[in-house]
Design a binder for these strands. Structure first.
Lengths: 152, 152
DNA sequence: TTACAACAATTGTATATACAAATGTATGTA
DNA sequence: TACATACATTTGTATATACAATTGTTGTAA
């Protein structure tokens, strides 16, 4: 990942700017590789994420707000995202008895089975992406990333 | 940026996976802050990027393929992206005399003036985002990021 | 009990992006 | 010259995402 080569420039890039660009380029790469890894299962990264969250519920249902809290995406998408997972028979949706405003979403047997395969594909993707980075470097990386100021 | 808190989980996340998620969360943050910084100028991050590339040409025009090489985005968008910049009178587009297949794109005076303001906004955004990270950490970060395996 | 605010999810619409096909131009070659 | 091929950009279409407005439900204060 040689930032200067990718941007096809010969003048040095300021450290802060270079860092940001570097992160954007790596994100680009992660996104592409994720899409590729999940392609055989016909799900998007976000759909995979929803399935993973539902799995983490250990049988308990999650409603849309909960899903949304644990995701990056916006609320309006979550409904349609779940719609697509229902079409694939990966999740079920029912109205919450206690509070009819809420929707409860469960992962199905089929969804769980597919999720296992997806997770394996994702793991080998991650392994490949990080194959040149040892655990010590990863620790260091995470430590620096922790320092990012992500609040406004 | 406490990954576990954001994902609202109490079980530890594997190092590799945590790193990927960490990067995705930071990207999310960069994207949001960038959009916010550029909002007063009514340009998207990609439009800003195009202007910056054109500025870097030092008066020489760039054609669409060149722009595309230096960008992350896909070719089909570049035409429409430039369309929008033309509407704002930030760039000009002419057919190349030597090779009528090619399109030459220049930044306008107005585009350059706005670009300076945009760049300042972006700089202070970057400064704010990285305010807790010193130069040594940034160097370390870049060194580890260099090790990412971004080829297929 | 009614009226109103808050909540949870959905829908509409505009904009952005991705992928494939189409258009117009140039080049090589038989 | 005529043809096929490659090049550079554009267009069409499907899908994704963002933002605002809407629907249906619940809680609560007068």
């Amino acid at each position: 990942m040689d930032v200067e080569r990718i941007l096809k420039t010969n003048k040095p890039i300021p450290l802060k700017g270079r860092t940001i660009i570097h992160l954007l380029l790596i994100h680009q790469s992660i996104t592409e590789k994720t899409a590729e890894a999940l392609k055989p299962f016909d799900v998007s990264a976000q759909q995979f994420n929803v399935l993973r969250i539902l799995k983490g519920q250990n049988g308990k249902p999650a409603n849309l707000s909960t899903l949304n809290d644990r995701m990056v995406s916006k609320m309006s998408n979550t409904t349609r995202l779940v719609d697509k997972l229902i079409l694939k028979d990966f999740v079920k949706r029912t109205v919450c008895k206690e509070n009819r405003r809420k929707i409860e979403i469960y992962i199905t047997k089929k969804g769980e089975e597919e999720l296992i395969k997806m997770s394996n594909a994702m793991l080998s993707m991650e392994k490949s992406l990080l194959k040149n980075i040892n655990d010590e470097d990863l620790q260091t990386l995470n430590k620096v990333l922790d320092k990012f100021n992500t609040d406004n």
